[in-house]
Design a binder for these strands. Structure first.
Lengths: 190, 190
DNA sequence: CCTACCGATCGGTAGG
DNA sequence: CCTACCGATCGGTAGG
């Protein structure tokens, strides 16, 4: 019999293990042990190992989209939209550090069809940034560069926070978002 | 009998496989197949799988240090030093995209002692950046922020180039380095 | 550099 | 949710 809540425990264990050891180096038995059941019993709650990864990847992709889309759809000026979007993006990472790390690094272990779906969602998301960057350049509030390059440099830079942020540290997700937005908008020079 | 050059072929195959599939998802037999030998024969040339990873990680760490240390030791002004160092760092990644990707993502699969050694080298390298950033702030050429935060945000941002750069693309390693240095020094705003 | 082989472990299924 | 088990595969060694 499956206990209510057990499935969520399995996903919580998978989040921790996939994000630290990586998907390929984590076994179903590792996850089971963390939850206090046998390896085979995991399959009473979950379709399989890859299905867990897929659910976690979608969880992360949704979090980014839901945080940033309303900002981009708002009537704010491009520089304000970009500032808020960058800050939100970083804050989402910091608040969901495990899932975000999995999203960035482990999606490649999905099946080809699911990999394609991830790439599509990521491209759609990046397009949100590219549009506001292009708008800001047109309105001469941003320096003129290739918007495609800037959007990808910018997003990959923001994603870097997942490699070093620790929730136990002194920085809050919000102050971290503000730091990144400020630094990337204004640069290091004064 | 071991053929001369075979060892380098094994390392070339490992660079390609570790950087795309990841260390844990790559088998010794995968590497062997790429080289055209049997899995067991790999051990005539190499100590073991982890030793290959270790050698590749050190290869990358050396490349970064050798490129950036002379710049930091030069008598240039802090903003010029930082610009050159950032550009060189990105250029090294782009020129060694496979090894760099392994360095950033796969070092965690090393033994505890080797992991510690990697962390130490990485900290020493980051210190080079932190010092010039602190110097630039003191001389009021950089905006005043926490140098520790800025150095880590900056380096993790530069490292992001490894997630999207493809040598087959239109950007050269050098122009990419210039783009990153310019963007991070001056920011997106004009 | 090969064949043959080792013990260990993998994701997953059968059948309660 | 368990025991028992499956075929496949792992990193690595022996002995040429």
């Amino acid at each position: 019999m499956s206990t209510p809540g057990k499935k969520e425990q399995i996903y919580a264990a998978a989040r921790a293990l996939f994000s630290t050891r990586g998907y390929a180096a984590t076994t179903v038995r590792d996850i089971a042990k963390e939850v206090g059941i046998r390896g085979a019993s995991v399959y009473a709650h979950v379709d399989g190992k890859e299905r867990i990864l897929w659910d976690l990847v979608i969880e992360a992709a949704d979090a980014f989209r839901d945080a940033v889309r309303p900002i981009m759809a708002s009537p704010l000026a491009p520089d304000e939209k970009l500032r808020l979007a960058m800050a939100e993006h970083v804050t989402v990472i910091a608040r969901n550090i495990e899932t975000s790390t999995i999203y960035f690094h482990e999606w490649q272990h999905l099946s080809p069809a699911r990999k394609r779906a991830v790439r599509d969602r990521r491209d759609t998301y990046e397009q949100l940034f590219r549009a506001v960057i292009a708008e800001g350049m047109k309105k001469r509030v941003f320096a003129k560069r290739d918007p495609r390059h800037v959007s990808i440099v910018l997003l990959s830079s923001l994603n870097g926070v997942s490699t070093w942020f620790r929730p136990s540290g002194p920085l809050s997700p919000e102050s971290l978002g503000a730091l990144y937005a400020d630094l990337l908008l204004k640069g290091i020079l004064r």
